[in-house]
């Protein structure tokens, strides 16, 4: 019951946030100085034609009316049409989302699979040389500009050593599309060449994207484990003479996971934002690159669509982590 109530409350809280988000994005978009209509009309359009278009897109109506129309349109799942390609923005975003999803998932996997064990080790061997080294690395993780890291990795691994491709998503014909994730599709269709190429292309961008997030996860896992180590119940278990590996495995990890899970929602935001620059540097054809293209072309509808899409995803992932946390640790719901 309590869980249900918590879920309901959490969902209800989402509504004003999402509404606010839409208003925020709307406000940003209509302050833009350059005239999007002129772009649509073509080179030798007359002022009358421009006006007609302005009317067709409703840009001549008062702002509140435009906002209402915008909300109504969003409710239909319509993010508008790209001023540039003439395609619905949802089509563009859905077409590119698998690329970003694949990259984000790979980065997330690196982050969690590497970050959690490293964090636990750092806590267990606190103040050892290992702990200090890790601290130095994690502190740099939060200080390094990801676009610069990306370029330095390209410089070393692609240009100097020629081990990995400089950019792009695949160097051979893509595998038959089942999920849109090349690595998974290649596995499912047994396409060895595509799998190898997709993995090679994934290496550098996924690592670049993961690096700052990795720092956060290591830090939080370490702190979480230390908290648990000093907590009464572990002291009690130890006093009971339970073997150390059991304590570490059974109690520590579960509790530390909760600490890490709280971070995943935040991490997702970090990854999503990071995807913009990482995709730009690595020419990764996802929604981040789409957004940068939209910036270059002043395709306002597309920028708007991307911003909203990111916001929605971010809110959704945070909701899911909160709910996941509730399942893992019911006390959360009562707080």
């Amino acid at each position: 019951m309590r869980r249900l109530l918590y879920t309901a409350k959490r969902l209800a809280l989402m509504v004003p946030t999402l509404f606010g988000l839409v208003v925020l994005v709307f406000v940003i978009s209509r302050v833009i100085p350059a005239d999007p209509v002129a772009l649509l009309a073509g080179e030798r359009a007359t002022p009358q034609q421009i006006e007609a278009l302005r009317h067709r897109y409703g840009l001549d109506r008062p702002l509140p009316v435009q906002l209402l129309a915008y909300l109504r349109q969003l409710a239909r799942g319509d993010l508008g049409t790209s001023l540039y390609s003439g395609r619905p923005i949802t089509t563009d975003l859905f077409g590119r989302f698998p690329a970003t999803l694949e990259l984000t998932l790979a980065a997330m996997a690196i982050t969690v699979l590497l970050g959690v064990p490293l964090g636990v080790l750092a806590a267990l061997y606190r103040n050892s040389w290992f702990d200090h080294l890790l601290r130095a690395v994690t502190v740099s993780g939060l200080a390094i500009a990801s676009f610069w890291l990306a370029i330095m990795l390209q410089l070393l691994f692609s240009m100097e050593l020629r081990l990995l491709p400089l950019g792009g998503r695949i160097g051979v014909p893509p595998p038959r599309a089942l999920t849109g994730l090349f690595v998974l599709d290649a596995l499912l269709t047994g396409n060895g060449a595509a799998l190898r190429s997709a993995l090679q292309h994934l290496c550098l961008p996924a690592f670049t994207l993961a690096f700052p997030a990795l720092a956060t996860v290591v830090r939080f896992t370490r702190a979480g484990v230390l908290d648990v180590l000093h907590s009464d119940f572990i002291l009690y278990e130890r006093a009971m003479g339970l073997p150390r590996p059991l304590i570490v495995g059974k109690y520590l990890l579960r509790n530390a996971m909760a600490a890490t899970l709280t971070q995943i929602g935040l991490l997702f935001g970090v990854l999503l934002a990071g995807a913009v620059v990482v995709e730009t540097v690595f020419d990764w054809p996802g929604i981040g690159l789409y957004a940068v293209n939209a910036i270059v072309l002043s395709d306002y509808n597309a920028i708007l669509g991307f911003t909203l899409w990111s916001g929605f995803l971010y809110v959704l992932v945070n909701l899911l982590t909160d709910l996941g946390l509730m399942l893992l640790d019911p006390r959360e719901a009562t707080r």
């Binding site: 606010g20 988000l21 935001g269 999503l272 990071g274």
Partner: peptide, 15 residues
């Protein structure tokens, strides 16, 4: 909260 509901870099880019 509305401002925090967007990744900051994304919002900064849009603005």
């Amino acid at each position: 909260d509305v401002f925090l509901s967007l990744p900051q870099a994304v919002l900064a880019i849009a603005i």
